[in-house]
Amino acid sequence: MSGSERADLMELYQSIILDHNRRPKNYGALEVATARRHDRNPACGDEIHLDLHVEDDVITDVKFTAEGCAVSRASASIMTQAVKGKSREEADALFVQFRELVTGKLNPTPDEVRKLGEIAAFSGVSRFPIRVKCASMAWHSLQAALRGDASAS
């Protein structure tokens, strides 16, 4: 393994991501929810249950449970923290930023990194194109829940 490859790996599996994988935040189910999703990635078997409570256009609560790799679980955990208390519009804007970050289209400035908070930890995913799906799964579930789509499964 070359030095740069090791650096890539350390950036993908940095401690924020490993910590959230080990001890995810907002883990569980909501008693009262305005939307519930159950999504699966048939290619890898990853699974997520996402419960969402939206009041007056604001995400007042969100919880999840997930079966999958460290990247997908950590992403779900960090996402729930990031979108709680946000309006739909703010959550959508965050998703756009997240997508650009993991696909390597956004190279955040220090100021943007501050604003992104723990989401910035996913910048390392852009070096692993096949892992973009893992990182994005929870966000796609959230988008579908906000749109009010019925779960596929």
């Binding site: 993908l12 599996y13 999958g68 790799c69 460290a70 990247v71 692993f128 893992c134």
Partner: peptide, 9 residues
């Protein structure tokens, strides 16, 4: 450790 994480490493 999920097998996908293993495969990447």
């Amino acid at each position: 450790i999920h097998p996908h994480d293993l495969a990447t490493i």
